[in-house]
């Protein structure tokens, strides 16, 4: 039986993306875990079972914030050829996306405040579809700019309104 499979795209995000994603996750996870612990400490009579529950919850939050970005880094990959943009995402649900160069409408780079600290940028590629744009996250910002410039050049050379 002949099998067909999608090969993983060639490139990964910049290694700094792991720290960025971790920082981002911690910004969310630390207050949540802290609030849970504080509520337990201040508003309850410290029953042991609740303490275990709250502790477990806080631990899970922090563990996810640390482990999640590492898992994402291993899974998220991207590749740009002369003909197409190809990305892979997702840990439980794998998602591969392909957009042909001839159908790309806009190419954007974006840098959030935290992202800037790490010298990273996202590249967003939009096609005419309402299914949503393709985003390549956590690239070195110079690489991202270069990639966006190249994509724009190729896209502009393609005639038609890409629908």
């Amino acid at each position: 039986m002949s099998g067909v499979a999608l090969r993983p795209p060639r490139h990964q995000a910049d290694p700094r993306a792991v720290s960025w994603w971790t920082a981002q996750a911690l910004i969310l996870a630390v207050p949540v875990a802290g609030a849970a612990v504080a509520a337990y400490w201040l508003f309850t009579g410290h029953p042991v079972w609740l303490g275990v529950l709250v502790g477990g919850f806080a631990g899970c939050c922090l563990a996810l914030a640390v482990a999640g970005p590492r898992a994402s880094y291993r899974v998220e990959r991207w590749e740009v050829t002369d003909d197409a943009v190809y990305t892979r995402k997702g840990w439980l649900t794998h998602t591969w996306r392909v957009a042909p160069m001839s159908r790309i409408q806009t190419v954007d780079t974006a840098r959030g405040p935290v992202q800037r600290l790490f010298g990273l940028a996202d590249v967003t590629v939009t096609t005419a579809s309402a299914a949503g744009p393709i985003t390549i996250e956590g690239l070195d910002h110079e690489l991202a700019a270069e990639l966006a410039a190249r994509l724009t050049a190729i896209t502009q050379a393609t005639p038609g309104d890409a629908t």
């Binding site: 997702g90 794998h94 159908r103």
Partner: peptide
């Protein structure tokens, strides 16, 4: 001719 890309998903 109207296909402008593919999204392939596979859940666990």
């Amino acid at each position: 001719g109207g296909i402008v890309g593919w999204t392939i998903t596979q859940s666990y």
